[in-house]
């Protein structure tokens, strides 16, 4: 499991920029950003180099922020890579709440998945031959 930084933002001009500024000022480097938006609010999900410090910085600045445990899986950056992974997840009988990916051109992508109801998902992925990178490796991808 890796730590995702989750931030609640009102859907108003400048809120995401302000939150990112807080993180920049705290010396936090972002690896990935995913925003789920609705008409009146959004939830920013962030992978960064130091989630604990990032959480503190945001909370100190008055943001509603939290750490969420998510699963990271390495997937070859080839056609059908994600589709194969999700097909396998289907067989585990767990529900994927949300997910997003990031690639750096090195031949592999990292898929981040929030999985509902499977504490042992990571183990089962590894058993099936998938590579679940270490937290530090994802934070410093």
């Amino acid at each position: 499991m890796i730590k995702q930084l989750t931030v609640f933002l009102t859907n108003e001009k400048g809120r995401l920029a302000a939150a990112c500024r807080v993180l920049a000022d705290a010396g936090i480097n972002l690896r990935s950003l995913n925003v789920a938006d609705t008409a009146d609010f959004g939830v920013a999900r962030i992978i960064c180099d130091n989630p604990d410090d990032a959480l503190q910085a945001l909370q100190h600045a008055g943001y509603r922020a939290a750490i969420t445990d998510v699963v990271a899986v390495c997937v070859p950056d080839v056609l059908g890579g994600l589709a194969d992974l999700l097909a396998f997840m289907d067989t585990l009988d767990v529900n994927i709440e949300y997910g997003y990916c990031f690639v750096n051109g090195g031949g592999n992508a990292i898929d981040i998945l929030k999985v509902d109801g499977g504490a042992d998902v990571e183990e089962r992925l590894i058993e099936a031959g998938y590579v679940c990178p270490k937290a530090e490796d994802v934070y410093n991808f």
């Binding site: 989750t6 609640f8 609705t38 939830v43 509603r64 939290a66 709440e97």
Partner: peptide
């Protein structure tokens, strides 16, 4: 309204 400090909010459906 504001959500309570212990409310888990990373999924949109929780908030909705």
């Amino acid at each position: 309204v504001e959500m309570a400090p212990d409310f888990v909010f990373d999924e949109i459906r929780q908030l909705e």
